[in-house]
Design a protein around this nucleic acid. Structure first.
Lengths: 134, 134
DNA sequence: TATTGTTATACTCTATAACTATA
DNA sequence: TATAGTTATAGAGTATAACAATA
């Protein structure tokens, strides 16, 4: 039997380890963790509120993260059709760095390299179930 | 195929969601998240350095968390056989609150309630693999 | 009136470095 | 000399509230 409290603690701890490994990768590119996370999520231009949801954080914090991305010349604020909305769109430099980051994360992720390919697929499926649907 | 970078991002995001749910449970008992996490871990008396490892944090931060636990009368510092070591031992009040917290976490964890029992077992096994072995 | 993003501000989380007391 | 815990301090991460622009 897997008590919810144990799984919950495990989830938090594994998340922490994952973040620590991610921190190493991001730091090697001189990126703070939240900035790096946003960069990875910006596969495709997205409204800032969208990012807030996917980062599980407040909209005001997305403003701060976006400022940092912009300061580094990695992203542009583009007005949406609804003029209240701003789309975040990676610059060429941003796209390039995003690819490099993804590479480094993959290589550096000793956390995940403890699992076999099959296990990683299973884990991804279960985490996906948790993450999506709000 | 499950790219390590995707699983990594998922792991962080799921950890964040898990922490958010945990935050709700802990807040209902007026406990900050790190304090609540420590409380759950103190099933059995443990050296502070041990806790640091399991919380993936610095020893100095454990001092701070312990102070907060002590202020609430939830824990006692007990000298170990090696006199440098201090064991953290829950008080009666601490043990009682620990049980209540575990209950609330289990009930409130809509994050994990999205999974079936079987899936939770599988998830626990995979996360356990990630977490242990350093 | 409700929603998106911004600003100012403050709080929480966490690490670093230097210290102490034991070993 | 090395290790466990403490102290002081600073920095990163993050939320809250009030606001502007647009819907």
């Amino acid at each position: 039997m897997a008590h919810a409290r144990d799984v919950s603690a495990l989830l938090i701890q594994a998340g922490e380890l994952g973040k620590a490994a991610f921190h190493g990768a991001a730091a090697s590119l001189e990126l703070p963790v939240p900035v790096a996370r946003a960069l990875l999520l910006l596969d495709v231009p997205a409204p800032m509120s969208d990012l807030a949801e996917r980062l599980t954080c407040d909209r005001s914090y997305v403003t701060s993260i976006t400022d940092q991305l912009e300061d580094r010349g990695l992203v542009q604020r583009v007005p949406g059709v609804d003029r209240r909305v701003k789309l975040l769109e990676l610059t060429t430099k941003g796209k390039r760095l995003r690819v490099r980051l993804a590479t480094v994360v993959a290589r550096e992720s000793d956390v995940l390299n403890k699992l076999t390919d099959d296990e990683r697929v299973t884990l991804a499926r279960l985490l996906g179930r948790i993450v999506q649907g709000r």
